[in-house]
Design a protein around this nucleic acid. Structure first.
Lengths: 201, 201
DNA sequence: TGTACAATCCCCTATTTATGGGATTTTAAT
DNA sequence: ATTAAAATCCCATAAATAGGGGATTGTACA
């Protein structure tokens, strides 16, 4: 049962956006991110995703209390961490659930995030895109590079069944290509990237 | 024939170190990095590697002209880019070959790096499993879930060429399945798993 | 100047995927 | 007892991939 989380990062600098998400991903490969440059981008999105944590550079509020208040009331259900990259915005970080500082070590960043994450366990019955046990078997073997025929032999079922499972997986995930299925499997820890590398390369 | 380069990054913030190297890696998967927190770490190393570029936050010199001079004369053969993360150090970036600013777009960062890189072209040094530029293009698009036909359209080449590139990739990597190619691309930072998720799911 | 290789294009065939239909049986929950 | 979902199996067709040939052009290097 994996911990998964969906994190919103709002930060003007692409270096910082990528750095932060890379550091978090290295520890939690199943976490997904939405990265934005400004607050406006967040509101104009019809993205109804529910975030488990928001990390935002206070500077994106442009010293506008109004914008900040709107943001905080819009996301009042979610913990919001400030990402403090310089000294001037020290005075801006009231209201945040907590703060990350640009010069923090990766350990303390991860601890702070862990602390404020509204944890979601993956044994969820979210609508109907939950894969069944057998579908997970098929997806795992598929993502490990097996053909449908090989999967059938491995699971002692006919290739028709494998095809059917795969069709259902594709429908549930809304995905058509093998590549996307592999990406999904990697992102959701259904396969381990290092193990797979060993066997397939 | 891939461009390869060995880059030294000296920057106190792990977020910025990881972000910068991630952004560069996404474009140039063959680049390697040595990441340091302070200048002292650089001198005390037994690392005799020759760098093709150094990216350093001027703040690591601690306002010490002496340390900065020592550093610059030690690496006088190498281009040194300043990594400017705040306003105070504007006055410190004389002497640098060029500058990156924390809020630069990834495009301008990559252009600036490209410009100052002492380019090293190496054919086949890693046995013969080095992918060519074009092969990397194909692999990236493939791992992002595009069909061979779509890749052909995207790259303005015929599908035959894509098939040929793919055949060569498979031979070089000793891999047959799409899944294994995706795994390889993920493990080697050729694609970013979060970006890919967004587009394919 | 000859060799090597990257990049492009083409043909061929066998196999595999993708996707649309169906169907039955078992298990679990209401 | 009815319903729902999981798991299994089958048919059929269009599209894509895997892998085998082969070829040309241009660039870089020795």
């Amino acid at each position: 049962m994996n911990k998964i989380a969906h994190i919103l990062i709002i930060e003007p600098s692409c270096i910082i956006r990528e750095g932060l998400s890379t550091i978090i991903s290295q520890k939690n490969p199943a976490f997904t991110f939405v990265k934005k440059t400004s607050v406006k981008d967040v509101f104009k999105k019809e993205d109804t995703a529910v975030f488990n944590l928001i990390i935002v550079n206070p500077l994106v509020f442009n010293c506008s209390k109004k914008m900040k208040n709107r943001f905080f009331s819009y996301f009042k259900e979610v913990n919001i961490l400030g990402l403090i990259s310089s000294l001037y915005d020290r005075n801006f970080h009231n209201g945040f659930t907590g703060c990350l500082f640009l010069n923090d070590s990766s350990t303390s960043i991860l601890i702070e995030i862990e602390k404020h994450l509204t944890i979601k366990l993956e044994k969820n019955r979210v609508s109907d895109n939950t894969l069944s046990d057998r579908e997970l078997d098929v997806l795992r073997l598929l993502a490990q590079g097996n053909s449908q025929k090989e999967i059938a032999e491995e699971l002692f079922i006919s290739i028709h069944t494998v095809v059917t499972h795969r069709k259902n997986i594709s429908h549930k995930l809304g995905v058509k290509s093998t590549a996307a299925l592999v990406i999904y499997a990697v992102a959701n820890n259904i396969i381990d990237i290092n193990d797979s590398l060993k066997s397939s390369l």
